[in-house]
Design a protein around this nucleic acid. Structure first.
Lengths: 228, 228
DNA sequence: ACGAAGCTGTGAAACATGTAACAGCGTTTT
DNA sequence: AAAACGCTGTTACATGTTTCACAGCTTCGT
């Protein structure tokens, strides 16, 4: 399906979890972090659900995947639930990420990573522009794309972000797969054709923009039945 | 449900079209453009479907929303189908778009718009940084955010992109809604809380990244049953 | 101490989405 | 000229996801 379908799943224990659930769990955890930061100790499903723009039932159902039960009277203990979702979501160890393409978007991604996401770290950048290669960007070394194979092997990188022009994206992706990448985040507005065992997530600004333009038109871009 | 659900629909004639269908149609059209550019005249459903990574049945089903029937022997005429999808998707007139936040991401968006998308045009940029205000960026004037209301009224802007730091996003969104915006594309990794009649699309890099990290883990991040 | 209230977890129903099966129709083949 | 082929449009079916509904628990108020 590869567009927005939820066909990608992941076995965990005996059950299988859909993308939609994973995305929502990530969102819940983010909200829980904020709550913990602001000193809140307990939270009820309807409060958390409201923050996440989801029905309480769905929230509770999603939480069934996590191993933690709330109290009927206090609700969920914020830090515990956060920790539990983390145990479910987080990789056992820090994951090394490569960034390909150090243009405006690439730099924006660097900025994004600064400070946060201790679990994911950009440890190598690639480009073809000689001016951008063999330098240190935010403390991260940059290489020419031709070195991808060696560098990624050496550093044990299995996740990469592609932030190059559309025309170059497919060839970059092929190179990365060659270099052993297992999972990609692609920002180029091109549908990549890859072996089925490589997980790809597309952030396709062009498509998203056209979508927004479409639903912006009147009359009636409405949320169906019961949305807040 | 505002995360990835498909709850937003749009009435058209008598029928209602889901987000998933719209996204796929946009993708089909993109592929058709490429085909037309490369001189292809006719295409069969299974070819187009393969390019879009979709089953032929689904493609044909999606095309039922468009008013055009292919020939059983030649398939679809590329330019005609492209035109027909366009008639379905495109706004009747060019849409003016505002961009808020002229950091790295904002500039990447400008770069993205250069040349293409004649139907969507960035006609105003906003920021709070005095150094970035009252200039011309790629031929587009930039203003201080406090002028949003006036400028957007004057220029008839109803679509905006938010590319500011997470902490500022909600307040920017409130300002934009105040200024009459109907549809938003938000890049800040914060869930915006807005009136229900404003359409919001989130491009949440943080969530997407965690998702990729999650599905990158072995064993078995697999596509279910029959994927190519 | 007992009932009421309000929350959680979950089985079952409702709904949306994707998949498979098939009828119809030009074109080509015998 | 008739039959066979291969593709389309569409209807029926299967799967996945969300919502509904309710039983059980824990505190609070009487």
């Amino acid at each position: 399906m590869a567009i927005k379908g939820t066909q990608t799943r992941r076995k965990l224990g005996k059950k299988t979890v859909s993308e939609l659930v994973v995305v929502r769990l990530i969102l819940y955890r983010r909200i829980l972090r904020d709550l913990a930061f602001s000193g809140t100790r307990y939270v009820f499903s309807h409060q958390l659900a409201a923050s996440a723009d989801v029905t309480p039932e769905q929230l509770r159902r999603d939480l069934m995947n996590v191993r933690y039960e709330g109290s009927p009277t206090r609700g969920y203990e914020v830090v515990v639930l956060e920790e539990r979702i983390g145990a479910f979501l987080d990789p056992p160890t820090t994951q090394a990420v490569a960034l390909v393409g150090v243009g405006n978007l690439g730099r924006a991604l660097f900025a994004y990573f600064l400070g946060r996401r201790p679990l994911l770290q950009i440890v190598a950048a690639f480009d073809i522009d000689p001016a951008k290669v063999d330098r240190l960007l935010n403390g991260c070394p940059s290489y020419h794309i031709s070195e991808a194979r060696t560098v990624m092997r050496d550093k044990g990188i299995y996740v990469a972000m592609i932030a190059v022009p559309a025309a170059a994206a497919q060839s970059v992706a092929d190179t990365l797969v060659e270099a052993g990448v297992r999972s990609l985040l692609n920002f180029a507005d091109v549908r990549l054709r890859l072996p089925p065992d490589v997980y790809v997530e597309h952030i396709d600004i062009g498509i998203t923009l056209e979508k927004v333009a479409f639903f912006a038109r009147r009359p009636a871009a409405t949320k169906v039945p019961g949305s807040p």
